[in-house]
Amino acid sequence: METYLYITAVIGVYVGFAVFIIGMGWRAYQWATTPKSPVKLGMFPKPKTRVGRFFKLMKDTFIAPQSASIEPRMWLFSFMFHFAALAAFVGHLRIIQEYPILPELLGEEGMNAFAGWAGGIAGVLMMVAVIYWIARRTFGPFKQLSVPEDYLLLALLFGVIIMGNHMRFFGHGVHAETYRAWFQSLLAFRPMLPSELVYSNVGWSLGTHMLFTDLLFIYFPFSKLVHTIGAFSANLVRSE
């Protein structure tokens, strides 16, 4: 178990993080250094001011009202996924540093219970959305349009989420504090795996959660997931 965790939750994290940062930086650099289209590709109506363009960009990127109007169900599941993923990301910050104020208000147990509920809901929402996306790609034009990349990414996401949920729902007694000890040791470049984590009932699920996470991060810059940064400039072009 320790070797497995050492590979996925120590080495893998470093490798995944490095590939992700360098890869995304390289991708952004490539975009930034390729000359812009000589033709203005905007469409109407377009905002006349910079501020207007900025707000439209934010609205189009974070809410995508046009997409909502044409396929509400797909929009709903996609919005749900992205929102829950953001919530999960924010929740994960707790393993770097405990939040201020909130734990004092709720107390340690209260905080853990809150994190349990919030993380649990986010995890379930993400899982439901990914299942919907997988199901949608199994028939008709959606299946015809799909390429292996699409299924690979969904499989990786599914792996990350289901293992995360396993830790969340079955990791009784293992709370943020334990994970924080592990993660802070990575940040300090003195990796250490707390034995109460390694030998708990969620040791293997952490290992597998991290296996999928590492792979997702390594593949991220080479996949369509670069839309996480590309969507902003592509949507801005709409108003130009």
Partner: peptide, 10 residues
């Protein structure tokens, strides 16, 4: 150009 590249990638 930048737009084409992004459309291809994202």
């Amino acid at each position: 150009n930048r737009q084409l590249k992004q459309y291809m990638d994202i």
